[in-house]
Simulated scan of single mutants.
Amino acid sequence: MAEGAEVAGRRVLIVEDVVTSGGQIILSTKELRTLGADIREALCVIDRQQGGEASLAAADITLVSLLTSTALRPTH
């Protein structure tokens, strides 16, 4: 579930390729927080803008995305 050292008492960043609903991030965060991880943000490459950001916010997780589905749509 987590790469690297022990997570208890450490700040942990969740990294995901694509976020749709945010459900998997919420599940993983819940488990990691149970182990003592301090999780405040999740980083994704593409936010599909289908409710994930709001779902994560409700779980006290800020979504930071490199791209959005809107940015990837052709403009012509």
Rank of each mutant, 00 (worst) to 15 (best):
D17S: 01
T29I: 03
R10L: 08
G9C: 05
G36M: 13
L32K: 10
L43V: 14
P74V: 00
G22I: 00
S65P: 00
Q24E: 13
G36S: 10
A59C: 03
P74C: 03
L27E: 15
A5V: 07
M1D: 06
A5W: 02
D38Y: 05
Q24K: 13
T75I: 07
V18P: 01
V12Y: 03
V7S: 05
R48C: 03
L35F: 11
L27C: 02
S69C: 03
R33N: 07
A5Y: 02
I39G: 09
L35N: 12
V19I: 15
E16N: 09
V45P: 02
L63K: 06
Q24D: 10
L66W: 07
S55A: 15
E53C: 08
G51V: 11
T75A: 10
S55E: 12
L35W: 12
T29K: 10
Q50L: 11
L43W: 13
E6R: 14
L32H: 06
G51A: 09
V19W: 05
I61D: 03
I46S: 03
G9P: 05
S69F: 10
G36W: 13
A71P: 01
A42D: 08
T29G: 14
E41H: 15
I61E: 00
A71Q: 15
D60L: 01
A8V: 03
G23Q: 13
G22Q: 05
D17Y: 05
T75N: 07
A5N: 09
A37C: 10
L43P: 06
R48F: 09
L32V: 09
G9V: 05
A5K: 09
A8Q: 13
I46R: 09
Q49P: 07
R11H: 15
E53Y: 01
I61S: 03
R11V: 11
A42H: 07
D17I: 07
V19C: 12
M1C: 04
R11S: 14
D17F: 04
L63V: 06
A2Q: 08
V64W: 04
A59N: 14
T20D: 13
